[in-house]
Amino acid sequence: MDLGLSGKRALVLSSSRGLGLASAKALAAEGAEVFMTARSGDKLDAAVAEIVAAGGRAHAFAANLTKDADRIFAEAERTMGGVDILIANTGGPPARMAAEVPDEDWMPQFEAMVLPVFRLARLCLPGMRARGFGRIVTIASSGVIQPIPNLAMSNALRASILGYSKTLAAEVAKDGITVNLVLPGRIRTDRTAELDAANAKRLGKSAEEIEAAAVSAIPAGRYGKVEEFGDVVAFLASERASYITGSKIAVDGGAVRSV
């Protein structure tokens, strides 16, 4: 299937590793030009080099998403001539129980995880509207459907992105713009390993025991691959997904049990 991504221009946030990198690779493999951002310049350069070596078009721009959202957008526009696709990926907060989060920890995490998504969506919309095509795909978490223990901050803050995205989707659908969320479950990434280690420490178990328990609750019987996740993002960003908007798509091996 031709996804119709050839010649499209994608801004992919936090894309030096993990789900962001997998999304950038999938988009580039389908012919999109990708503008990749992260704080780590070395990791980002290596990621871009990998995509270019595979025949894709990619650019690196090291920046702090919390402070530099306007600069990131301006540089993406200057480099590619426009942004047709926004893949909004932001880092996750520390693992915490709900009753343990002090008041002063909420705002910095909101400014790091949530506000850049809102700001960059707003910046991208005028160009998308003018061209009659746009895709805003946010990488969130299955925790917005089924809250994940010990991830109170992520569950709460990512849920605000869900509400925003659903509202925005209805406002811009007539302009040829779709707005969707992709909700990863247990995908094998550095972040997942960090969370397993945090839960192991909290519960006095080994990381291997934590992973085994997690796998036992996943109908697919395994952690997901980043490539499987990236392919879903690429589809939602494509012309073929033009009638999917305001949706949340779980990529979790069936772990979320709600209907």
Rank of each mutant, 00 (worst) to 15 (best):
A32K: 10
A32G: 05
E33R: 13
M36V: 07
T37H: 08
T37K: 08
A38T: 02
A38P: 05
R39W: 04
R39G: 12
G41I: 03
G41F: 03
D42T: 11
D42L: 06
K43Q: 11
L44R: 02
D45V: 00
A46F: 01
V48K: 12
E50Y: 00
V52F: 05
A54I: 01
G56E: 04
A58Y: 03
H59I: 03
A62S: 14
N64R: 07
L65A: 08
D68H: 05
D68Q: 14
R71M: 11
R71Q: 15
R71H: 07
F73H: 15
M80V: 09
G81C: 04
G82I: 08
G82K: 13
V83C: 12
V83T: 12
L86Y: 00
L86W: 08
L86E: 06
L86P: 04
A88S: 14
N89H: 08
P93Q: 08
A98Q: 10
A99N: 12
A99V: 11
E100T: 12
E100S: 14
E100C: 05
V101Q: 09
P102M: 10
E104C: 07
E104A: 13
D105F: 01
M107T: 13
M107L: 15
Q109N: 11
Q109C: 05
F110H: 11
E111S: 02
E111N: 14
A112C: 02
